[in-house]
């Protein structure tokens, strides 16, 4: 059985690596199917057939006239050469690529800063530097929804910066405040600390850890290999949750990010923007999968390199 388990350690990481490679194509494909199902279509929104005779022509221009598969494949072949087309509605006539290039760093900074906060909290909980009694305070702060924190931040920025709210300095302030909102609100930090704490507390109870402590070893070094996959899974889930929350933060704080593009693009049925932003999103998700797979591989390697358990003679 142990041999089977040893042989099968690579399955999960392999699935993750495979998924990471497929995501930049698979996720836009799924999203194409979803937005295609929305009532109406972009051509009809701009040229309603009841009052405008060019609807079909516009649909043909935008590859909307031969079904979602044709549309997606056309988009894919253009995207492969770096052409993400133009925005049809949210910034009509503007090429999508520059929008994406502006959005990705903003979202990465926003989510990255929020994630740093979560990782710090998780590490603190794992090492007990962050005491258990701090969880109540974090939970209390976490009661505030992201949208409320973001609204307060947006009001403060608007009133203080006014028309300069889109200058570089104001954008940095918005990203910082948005990251705080993302990290603290919606029980994000509280959940991360509690979740990691519960995993490590559960590991601390185990005999192998207690034996390690008796040997003078650290808790973290003993428990980490066992806990790492679960924590990696948890952190990945929390990061994806942060990416979802980033939509709210970016819309409320008016940050030009992937979430904002996704949200406005979906509402306006600006397919080019949605697919490009989804592609960007898939890249971020794929990188998370890669990170998770790397952790699992590292843990498996660590286990394989550890001294083998010797059978005690009867």
């Amino acid at each position: 059985m142990a041999a089977d388990g040893a042989r099968q350690w690579w399955i999960r990481p392999a699935i993750r690596l495979g998924a990471a490679a497929l995501l930049p194509v698979a996720v836009p494909a799924v999203i194409t199917g979803l937005i295609w199902a929305l009532p109406g279509d972009p051509a009809s929104l701009i040229c309603p057939p009841e009052i405008c005779s060019g609807t079909e022509q516009l649909a043909a221009r935008w590859n909307l006239d031969q079904g979602p598969v044709h549309f997606f494949l056309s988009w894919l072949s253009d995207a492969a050469s770096g052409d993400f087309g133009k925005s049809w509605r949210i910034q009509q006539g503007s090429p999508v690529t520059p929008l994406l290039l502006t959005a990705i760093p903003h979202t990465a900074a926003l989510v990255g800063l929020a994630l740093s906060l979560l990782l710090a909290g998780a590490l603190g909980a794992a090492t007990r530097v962050l005491p258990a009694r701090a969880d109540s305070l974090l939970s209390a702060v976490g009661l505030i929804p992201t949208v409320v924190m973001s609204l307060a931040a947006a009001a403060a920025v608007s009133i203080n910066y006014g028309a300069s709210a889109f200058d570089a300095e104001a954008v940095r302030v918005k990203i910082l405040l948005g990251a705080l909102a993302l990290g603290l609100a919606d029980s994000a930090l509280a959940g991360a600390a509690r979740g990691v704490r519960s995993i490590f507390e559960s590991e601390r109870q185990r005999r192998y850890v207690q034996m390690g402590i008796l040997r003078g070893e650290g808790v973290l070094s003993n428990a980490w290999p066992n806990a790492a996959p679960a924590i990696a899974g948890q952190m990945r889930a929390r990061t994806l949750h942060l990416l979802s929350g980033a939509v709210v933060v970016e819309v409320v704080l008016q940050i030009e990010g992937l979430g904002d593009l996704l949200w406005s693009g979906t509402l306006a049925q600006d397919f080019g923007v949605v697919l490009a932003a989804t592609f960007g999103f898939a890249l971020l998700s794929g990188s998370l999968l890669l990170a998770q797979a790397a952790v699992e591989i590292a843990v498996a390697m660590h286990v394989r390199r550890s001294p083998p358990v010797r059978e005690v003679a009867a």
Partner: peptide
């Protein structure tokens, strides 16, 4: 004149001000 022409975000007019359509302003 299609709707997704570059003109829609970077127009040229004879009016008193030239404009560029941004995503937030």
């Amino acid at each position: 004149v299609p709707p997704d022409h570059d003109f829609s975000s970077h127009p040229t007019g004879t009016g008193p001000a030239s404009g560029n359509l941004g995503s937030k302003q």
